[in-house]
Simulated scan of single mutants.
Amino acid sequence: MSDHCCAGASGKTALNDPRWRRILWAALLINAAMFGVEIVAGVAADSRALQADALDFLGDAANYAISLGVAGMALAWRARAAMVKAVTMLAFGLWVLGSAVWGFIDGSAPHAETMGLIGALALAANVAVALMLYRYRTGDANMRSVWICSRNDAIGNVAVMGAALGVFGTGQSWPDLVVAAIMATLAIWGSIEVFRQARGELGAIPATDH
Rank of each mutant, 00 (worst) to 15 (best):
A45H: 13
A45Q: 03
A45M: 09
A45T: 13
D46I: 01
D46P: 06
S47P: 07
A49L: 06
L50W: 05
A52Q: 05
D53R: 09
A54I: 13
L55K: 05
L55V: 04
L55R: 12
L55T: 01
D56K: 13
D56L: 06
F57T: 00
A62N: 13
A62H: 13
Y64L: 10
A65T: 07
A65D: 08
S67N: 12
S67W: 00
V70Q: 02
G72V: 09
M73K: 13
A74Y: 00
A74G: 12
A74H: 03
L75V: 05
L75Y: 00
R78S: 00
R78V: 06
A79P: 12
A79E: 01
A81W: 07
A81T: 03
A82Q: 02
V84I: 04
V84Q: 11
V84T: 07
K85L: 13
A86V: 01
V87R: 09
M89R: 05
M89I: 01
L90S: 05
A91H: 11
F92S: 11
G93V: 05
G93I: 11
G93E: 01
L94C: 11
L94K: 14
L94T: 11
W95K: 10
V96R: 00
S99I: 04
A100T: 03
W102E: 08
G103F: 03
I105N: 03
D106C: 11
D106T: 12
S108C: 12
A109M: 10
A109K: 08
A109W: 02
P110L: 00
H111R: 14
H111T: 14
T114Q: 04
M115E: 06
G116P: 07
